[in-house]
Design a protein around this nucleic acid. Structure first.
Lengths: 264, 264
DNA sequence: CGGCCTTTTGAGGCTACTCAAAGCCGGTGG
DNA sequence: CCACCGGCTTTGAGTAGCCTCAAAAGGCCG
């Protein structure tokens, strides 16, 4: 079900850069050096290296995982953004969350069951591949990593909770605003945006609509109205917020804490 | 913040039953003997016993955990049902999930942050109390339990996902139907209902509304219409479904697998 | 230039909301 | 025992937010 190009199996003819390394060593993991994350200690780094099976790249728009399939793997997003969604038989679909660097993919589903959702790359993305079966070993040998695993699962849950509250209780304008500030904050917390309150995010209005439980047309009108009002300036591919404080208030969003995130 | 009566600190004067035991030993845990659950092996049972700090009881309607507070504990529901919800400043609230026997309370929130939600007992309930800090130990000594912990978190997430899809994509009638069959299935899977497609569930229509993102009035009308149609017969406190298959179809619900659930 | 995808705008209709008030039921107290 | 009260449910009436259908106007790419 994986359709991504396997890094390292691709021949780079006469590129200036030599691509003889198939897989990024964990020691050189981009997350490891990103100061939004708490770096792994030497011994854990070594362990994760032994745990890491592979590395895959997906182009924007590619399906990383497909609902109904099985996945024997667990992935960590190294780079890029993705959406996770569930489709109904009649074509309706609900985007349930966005995936940012450091997020684990595959934790969400049950372990033996079919996947309950699909994952699609929003931007070009690189993922780390771990086996899912023997991560008893991970817990046994490095309880701290097990703890981090649970931490990540808990955070993912908190995010879902936030979206559920939004879709269940807020008006269209509040939902859009909430999503906008949430995305910016999330991007900031995972090191893919700076404090300029600006984010390049190649997402269509149809996707925003599917995330917020609104129709495409109404999403479009709501975006327009928020733009005219100066609250949220979300043009295709480019999200900006002038007055962050005001937007947070209106969208009833409480920012994520400052602490560094763990990753695996 | 805990307002529940501490079992064992209550004096039972001249009751016929002697209440000299403060806490149910894990060996006699109701979940252990319930055939909806996979019983713990002897050594794990022993470990959990050493892990168990206390046991608390709450009466119907009592608050088990309050949004904004801290919780140094992790709880397993031994008996009863509860709702987990998040409130907004202006009084709106969204119920994000129902808790059934065997569910863990406290996993959802982050670990050091304030709680992002409240938990309220729907029926009289009993909970097991575990310390949250040193469950590194749990992972280290019993990776299998760590695995189960993650399994439970994953299932909780899948449930939230289901609710999000419902609230985001389905019509009022579909939402009510989905919730009804989900509750029945959940009750069946945790041993508090038999196969009669009937459930005693003391929940108000206002709570149903807050779960589904609908207004109270519209929830009431929708319930009425589904009752007249014979799809879902949900009278106050008593939920019945005549034709389970038809209801599942209409609510787009896929039943939980038959396998036994782990618990901690 | 033509085709495809996305965004934008218009018009009309339905679902679900708000406000309002009446019935119901269980509990409490005179 | 009955009156009263508070919480929950039920019903009515009018409205608004959001939806659907439809079509035109941008971009991007071969």
């Amino acid at each position: 079900m994986r359709t991504g190009k396997e890094i390292g199996k691709v021949k780079y003819g006469d590129s200036a850069v030599t691509m003889d390394r198939k897989i990024t060593p964990c020691r050189e993991c981009p997350l490891q050096s990103c100061d939004a994350f708490r770096p792994l200690s030497e011994d854990k780094l070594e362990f994760m290296q032994s745990f890491k099976e592979d590395e895959v790249a997906y182009a924007r728009g590619e399906i990383i995982a497909a609902q109904g399939g099985k996945s024997p793997h667990l992935n960590t997003m190294l780079e890029g953004m993705a959406i996770r969604y569930r489709s109904l038989d009649d074509g309706r679909r609900q985007i349930v969350n966005f995936m940012f660097p450091g997020d684990l993919i595959g934790l969400q589903g049950a372990f033996d069951d079919d996947l309950s959702h699909s994952v699609e790359a929003l931007t070009d993305a690189r993922l780390c591949v771990f086996p899912r079966n023997d991560f008893h070993r991970l817990m046994g040998e490095h309880p701290r990593l097990g703890y981090d695993l649970v931490w990540l699962a808990a955070k993912e849950e908190t995010a879902l909770e936030g979206h559920l509250v939004s879709v269940g209780q807020r008006t269209a304008r509040e939902r859009v605003t909430f999503l906008a500030v949430w995305l910016l904050d999330r991007a900031l917390a995972t090191g893919i945006a700076d404090k300029s309150n600006r984010l390049d995010i190649p997402i269509t209005q149809a996707q925003i609509a599917d995330m917020l439980g609104l129709s495409l047309v109404h999403t479009n009108r709501t975006l327009k109205s928020l733009r005219e009002e100066g609250l949220v300036d979300w043009k295709p591919g480019d999200l900006r917020i002038e007055d962050m404080k005001k937007a947070c208030d209106f969208g009833q969003y409480t920012p994520i804490g400052e602490g560094k995130r763990p990753f695996i």
